[in-house]
Design a protein around this nucleic acid. Sequence first.
DNA 1: ACTTGCAGATTGTCAGACAATCTGATTATC
DNA 2: GATAATCAGATTGTCTGACAATCTGCAAGT
Lengths: 218, 218
Amino acid sequence: MDLKILPMTVQQQAADKLRTAILSGVFQPGERLIEADLCTRLGVSRPSVREALRSLEAEKLVAIVPNRGPLVPILSWQQAKEIYQVRALLEGEVAAAFAERATAENIKRMREALADFNGADKSGDAAGRLNATSRFYDEMLAGCGNSLIQEIVQGLLARITFLRSRSMSKTGRAKHSAREMRKILLAIQAGDAKAARKAAVEHVENACAAARSMFDTK
Amino acid sequence: MDLKILPMTVQQQAADKLRTAILSGVFQPGERLIEADLCTRLGVSRPSVREALRSLEAEKLVAIVPNRGPLVPILSWQQAKEIYQVRALLEGEVAAAFAERATAENIKRMREALADFNGADKSGDAAGRLNATSRFYDEMLAGCGNSLIQEIVQGLLARITFLRSRSMSKTGRAKHSAREMRKILLAIQAGDAKAARKAAVEHVENACAAARSMFDTK
DNA sequence: ACTTGCAGATTGTCAGACAATCTGATTATC
DNA sequence: GATAATCAGATTGTCTGACAATCTGCAAGT
């Protein structure tokens, strides 16, 4: 077991706090982030805030415009579409790889996540729905045997959190989504890599279509 | 045409200089980067250097260990392997997409890059070889219609520059590589997406095998 | 040979400062 | 009245200087 304790530097904590704040919608897309503001809110100095912002900039969670400062980027449909394309490619690979190495324990946790998703859906708990989805995904991503893919996909998912939570609220989307996830799970259970890839790709494509309609109506 | 002039901030220039320095081998993998050193060398203050380092950290071109500071990361074989896996996936997609949208101009430039590659190979010019390869790739990446894939792949290529320049110097690898690139180009010229994907995947797989042997001998 | 402890080097973080730049509103001009 | 020029306030980009916390390697002690 790895007992290494790695110190939590101020800039790291600042970056973490800002990241969760952005992902949870405390800062809306398009909103400018005032450095001095963040300093007082976070209780740290400006250099630390600026370093944290540079990290988040590289993650594409904030954009820094020279002489205008940081802001939460607004995703264009073009960008969103590209993200879904890459997701389809990578998550298909993940599902295929995972189908060939999933343990009983893995599958059990995925089934639980799926059950929680349905529970959250029944009670109309949007946050719970997204949380269950994340657990479903993380199980695959962590177990697919390629930590680089995991990292990339999680980064992409972070960038479209806003879109996902919105499009998931569309009537019917949650039910469809649940069915698609079950299909993925069944293929994995059967150890059928090809079917798992196909199901995963379809799932992303459907999510993409659902997201697209968000842009049309908005 | 986009004529927007975006100011070159000090931290950006610092990041750029450091990036090229790392990629060109001025700083060797494993080497520690002393902030004070970088300050005097770049002629900028410590805050600027630290911000630049945070950006590069997110790009994985430097690793920052708390209380030890920045260093050029040493790639493990496991990491390298994962990078090649993702490259195969993404570059296959790029080649396939590009085969269906390449213009005559695109193909002309790729042919030129390939010719330059062979020229550089004959004269034993390692830097010229890598440069020509980059131009060959960039043409595809820029034209594949998905700027996100372009960005990801270029980031991955940057992380393995060191490996690539070494494995390319292996006897015979350059010749093989040239042949593989020609195969990709021919498929693209024919507009055969499927063949282009296959050729691109094979090219990456061969590059991966060549890289692997670097780890064994080293 | 193995621990202990110390000195030097380096990082993490802060406070304060100032010029450059942007923003929006006010004023001047046609 | 509408457009253009101007200006004050806000905000960022950058620097200097400082100091505690931490790491490293070496010397001393057991």
